[in-house]
Simulated scan of single mutants.
Amino acid sequence: MKIVIIGGTGLIGSNVTNKLRQLGHTVIAGSPSTGINALTGEGLSDALENADVVVDLSNSPSFEDGPAIQFFQTVGRNILSAERNAGVKHHVILSIVGTHLMEGMGYMRAKKIQEDLVKSSGLPYTIVRSTLFFWKF
């Protein structure tokens, strides 16, 4: 199965990419550093050609209301449009438990907007909601 991971070189994405490759899938790790920029749309069409699944692990570089909302709206629309054009069969996003309960926080509102875009896209989807986690640098 061909799977494109948007955010595939990040902390979570690199681990998901490695696990899926170990299971024998063809995995494209999408990020600006690999020529796939979901924010600008650069490289999306080519990467999604013949893809079965897209896993969106993209993350806003800002937690501020306006930039986070703009990021998730733009990235979500770009990915979903490219998926429809390529005939992708399934869309997966990583979200956060309780986004609908914490819309007073800009980042959580942005994640809820991302979820709503996926729900209204008409594409088959899965939303994986995780609790917040922290890691040591």
Rank of each mutant, 00 (worst) to 15 (best):
M1P: 14
V4C: 05
V4H: 01
I5Q: 07
G7T: 07
G8W: 00
T9V: 09
G10I: 03
L11M: 14
L11G: 10
I12H: 05
S14W: 02
V16R: 06
V16P: 03
T17S: 09
N18M: 08
K19D: 14
K19V: 13
K19N: 06
L20K: 08
Q22L: 13
L23H: 09
L23S: 13
L23D: 14
G24P: 13
T26A: 15
A29S: 12
A29K: 01
A29H: 03
A29P: 10
G30S: 01
G30N: 00
T34H: 01
G35F: 07
I36F: 01
I36S: 02
G41P: 10
G41F: 10
S45L: 11
D46Q: 15
A47N: 07
L48D: 07
A51Y: 09
D52Q: 14
D52G: 11
D52T: 08
D52R: 12
V54T: 05
V54I: 07
V54M: 03
V55A: 12
D56G: 11
L57R: 08
S58M: 04
S58F: 05
S60W: 00
F63R: 14
F63H: 11
E64S: 12
D65M: 04
G66C: 00
G66H: 09
A68C: 06
A68V: 06
Q70T: 09
F72W: 01
Q73V: 15
T74M: 05
T74V: 02
V75W: 00
G76C: 04
I79D: 08
I79Q: 04
I79E: 05
L80N: 09
L80A: 04
L80G: 06
S81W: 08
A82C: 12
A82R: 08
A82T: 14
E83F: 00
E83V: 08
R84K: 14
A86K: 06
G87I: 09
H90N: 03
H90K: 11
H90F: 09
H90W: 07
V92N: 02
V92G: 00
L94D: 01
S95G: 05
I96W: 06
I96D: 04
V97L: 12
G98E: 01
H100M: 10
M102A: 15
G104A: 10
M105N: 12
M105K: 12
G106V: 13
G106S: 03
A110E: 04
K111G: 03
K112R: 15
K112N: 08
I113V: 15
Q114S: 12
Q114H: 15
E115C: 05
D116F: 10
L117I: 11
K119H: 07
S120E: 15
G122M: 00
L123H: 11
L123P: 02
P124G: 04
Y125I: 04
Y125G: 02
T126Y: 12
T126D: 10
I127T: 08
I127K: 00
V128T: 06
R129D: 03
W135G: 15
F137M: 11
F137L: 14
